[in-house]
Design a protein around this nucleic acid. Structure first.
Length: 277
DNA sequence: AGAGGTTCTCGGGCGC
DNA sequence: TGCGCCCGAGAACCTC
């Protein structure tokens, strides 16, 4: 469920909740979430006695740091972290529990079980899957108009699937890519390599602007997203197209449409985002 | 009943 | 032909 703004918000709330807590033990009830090391026992043994000293983010991935390890976690569609007292009843969709020495627990809940965790020695995490080969952060110096232009020019895909590719750029998901394309006035099915430099410059700006405004609002809560302190996001109130099929376009007043692009539900304004012009 | 905020794997097609 | 890359489809799972 989360894209960059939601993951950034979860990161900030987790920092409030778990820093300086020491892991006494770990319970894992759905081992397929643990992708590395393959043996769940090794994962547990490595982290026993470790203390969380920082929480970071790379794209849509959370990174939990201890003194010796980096735990890379992806929430995929429905993953959530929250802190509980140990006597609180455990929900049936909770699959990983970090038991702390102070009597609290960090629980990972994931209805669809799509989420992943990779544990590496600190320093190794960026050269191994899943963090190796990721594209630039949207707020970084590497994400320039020239970079975006170069990458879009060298692919034959439609612009929306291209922008969802985390190797091109990290952070955009199905909500924010639709929003950014609307704000840039670009049809999601336009071929990436057909975009004009001027269009790409606007798109570049709107990607960064959309994501940073959403971070400020704590992300978007559409159906299930909450941060690790149980709070919902507020950016959904400012969405222009996502989830607004049939409603009036905020620019031109005509009804918004929903189509499928690259297998994903796609919201856009047929009047403001034309395929050819 | 089918879609849902994600990404990995697989197989076909294309170019060298 | 063979290899590698790129692309799209399907799969992973559960709820409503």
């Amino acid at each position: 469920m989360p894209e960059l703004p939601e993951v950034e918000t979860v990161k900030k709330t987790l920092q409030q909740l778990i820093l300086n807590k020491t892991i006494a033990n770990i319970t894992i009830t759905w081992s397929k979430i643990i992708k590395h090391p393959l043996e769940v026992e090794q994962f547990i043994d490595a982290l026993k006695g470790e203390t969380f000293v920082d929480v970071g983010r790379r794209g849509k991935f959370l990174i939990f740091y201890t003194h010796h390890f980096a735990l890379v976690s992806h929430l995929r569609m429905e993953g959530r972290y929250a802190l509980y007292p140990k006597d609180e009843p455990v929900d049936k969709h909770t699959h990983v529990i970090f038991h702390f020495t102070d009597g609290t627990e960090l629980r990972y809940r994931d209805v669809r079980k799509f989420g992943t965790m990779h544990l590496y020695k600190r320093g190794d995490e960026f050269s191994k899957a899943p963090l190796a080969d990721l594209g630039p952060e949207p707020f970084s110096e590497q994400f320039t108009v020239e970079y975006l232009q170069k990458k879009l020019k060298q692919t034959s895909r439609k612009v929306k699937p291209a922008l969802l590719d985390q190797k091109l750029l990290v952070g955009l998901g199905n909500i924010y890519v639709d929003e950014a394309l609307f704000r840039a006035g670009i049809h999601p099915e336009k071929l990436a390599n057909s975009l004009k430099k001027q269009e790409i410059a606007i798109l570049h700006h709107e990607i960064a602007a959309t994501l940073s405004e959403a971070v400020e609002k704590g992300g978007s809560t559409i159906r299930s997203y909450i941060n690790s302190q149980g709070e919902i996001g507020m950016f959904q109130l400012q969405l222009n197209v996502y989830g607004r099929k049939g409603e009036a376009c905020k620019k031109c007043g005509r009804p918004l449409e929903k189509i499928t692009v690259g297998g994903r539900g796609t919201h856009y304004c047929p009047n403001c985002q034309k395929l050819k012009k």
